[in-house]
Design a protein around this nucleic acid. Structure first.
Lengths: 337, 337
DNA sequence: TTGTACGCGTTATCAA
DNA sequence: TTGATAACGCGTACAA
């Protein structure tokens, strides 16, 4: 790789002049500009971003940490696709780094991005606790934004959505249509989202004085296969079920497959709702209703804020972020009975 | 951020010693080691990776370029998930960068990664031509691997799969089951994969002396919506159709939805096959058969090679890569009539 | 308008 | 076993 010095020599000028031509800052005569460009061309010169970033202490990058356990599915592509689109015209690059399988590895991923001097870091956490994230944010100067968790201290650094509320609404919706025997398939219970969705379901039942039947609650793992297994278990228990609320679409799809295989008609004998409203969902069986998860809106919002913060310059974080922004889920109606 | 110099001062030693402690190379007495670790702790010191990479001319990163038009879908998460898993234990980080919407932007993305001094770059191209990629590979010292394209010159730098062959097999499969009126939904025709799949279909028909009916060939755009539109067009044309071959699963799903909406039974009145075998496919209607695309195997293979090349040290590229490796698709049987 | 010289935070090569 | 000091490639005051 040729360096700026080589280009300077070729063009018969100094490094500084080459640097000026490249950055467009400072005065350079047209004639020397020409020479420099020619020399760059000849040498096949490319600036070394590492050196540049080291010198400027900026990287023009925004880091994103997501666990690879999420890579495998529709939900993740929503996140990434939205982030890329939003950042596309900003000149900054999106760098995705793997959070792997533990809180420690998630933290290491964040550190890696910070050590790379990313302008900002966004994390969609899976293992880190709220307190750990609050600590990390305190320790670092670069802005770190957390998606889908409500932080305790740095509420201006997070953006989240009301999973409990949307689950409540979905359950209420079913109840108002006459359902009483509503089964619930949970997500992995080590995930806060899963817990919130379950509690929304329970709260709705309580509000309508429907007693909670633990036999109607089955643990899933977010995957289609676990949706299949959940329905198997429900059938085994021989409980009366007129509707199923699955904690995400992938499990809902698995559940539907199992019901189909058993010859149970949807929505004739049973209704089913999933969460997240993944892109493919509208094209699946019309029997599947889905609660929209606003993850793409959240990502979009986070990036907008970061950009305005980074480019706007002198705004303090407190002024840029508001702590009480909470994007509500919206309920998508489906053909329930 | 505190620097190595600060740590050195705090510990009462020189930068060099701190560096030795951190890298584990060279002799350092246990006593000073202790002091250095303590100072690091106190200062909350973290090494600046930019500086380190600049000094070593390595980054411990592997870059991946994929267009964000692909982010939106099941296929992409397969690629990424496989790449992350494969690289997880290697100590190197995977950096994903957006290829955006043009050959130029794809090239810029590669440059960006090279300028960051990534140890290697993998590209899943969408817009760059084969010749352009051959040129890029020639110009750079770092290994650049191309997935899903057959290069002309640097065949050791690419890995691809036989889309035409698998499409041929799928069509043959349908023909052998008695189908004669087989419709074909293409992908975006600016994509080589789409062209190859179409030509496999045509070749199979030719081989069985079935004349090609252009009215049975409809252009899609890889999306579920375009699958819906394709079936609409087919219905409008009122051609006799007993089977549909869709160039990917997402279009197949769209096509199925439209057929369902029209009350046409699958596989009773019509059979349908898609490509790629996305993870969710097995959980959809049993009517959908899918041809497996070996993209995850390819990614996996590419990364294995890169790792052995980078870590193995002195092997020349020619020895590490073989030019004629071609992973064949395998046909997944489905309930055709 | 251009050049000089120093700083960015590391690693690595010598001497000591 | 340690410490100066020169790279690494670029940005940028400051001087010319």
């Amino acid at each position: 790789m040729s360096t700026m010095l080589e280009v300077a020599n070729k063009a018969g000028v100094s490094k500084a002049t080459v640097s000026r031509v490249l950055s467009g800052k400072g005065y350079v005569s047209e004639a020397t500009k020409e020479q420099v460009y020619r020399a760059i061309e000849e040498a096949g010169y490319r600036p070394n971003l590492l050196a540049r970033n080291l010198a400027t202490n900026k990287s023009e990058c925004i880091g994103l940490v997501v666990t690879n356990t999420l890579y495998h599915g529709n939900y993740f592509s929503e996140i990434l696709s939205q982030a890329a689109k939003k950042l596309e015209d900003n000149g900054r690059q999106l760098i995705l780094v793997d959070g792997k399988h533990s809180a420690q590895e998630e933290q290491e991923a964040i550190q890696f991005l910070l050590d790379l001097r990313c302008d900002a870091v966004i994390i969609y956490p899976r293992f880190l606790t709220i307190d750990e994230m609050d600590q990390i944010i305190e320790k670092h100067k670069q802005p770190i934004m957390v998606v889908n968790r409500k932080l305790r201290k740095h509420q201006s650094h997070c953006i989240c959505c009301d999973h409990k509320g949307s689950s409540f609404l979905a359950t209420k919706h079913l109840i108002e249509r006459g359902h009483r025997d509503i089964a619930f398939i949970t997500g992995s219970m080590d995930s806060p989202t899963a817990i919130e969705r379950l509690s929304g379901y329970k709260e709705a039942l309580n509000q309508y004085d429907i007693s909670i039947n633990e036999n109607l609650i089955v643990q899933g793992k977010w995957t289609p296969a676990s949706g299949v297994a959940a329905v198997e278990l429900l059938l085994l228990r021989k409980e009366k079920v007129s509707a199923i609320l699955a904690s995400n679409d992938e499990m809902a799809i698995g559940a539907m497959k199992k019901l189909n295989d058993e010859g149970i008609s949807i929505p004739g004998e049973i209704s089913i709702i999933g969460f997240d409203n993944i892109p493919i969902a509208p094209y699946l069986s019309p029997a599947l209703a889905s609660i929209k998860d606003p993850v793409s809106d959240m990502i979009s919002e986070v990036i907008s804020r970061l950009i305005s913060m980074l480019d706007g310059g002198y705004l303090s974080q407190e002024n840029v972020f508001t702590s009480d922004l909470l994007i509500r889920n919206s309920v998508v109606d489906g053909p329930f009975k």
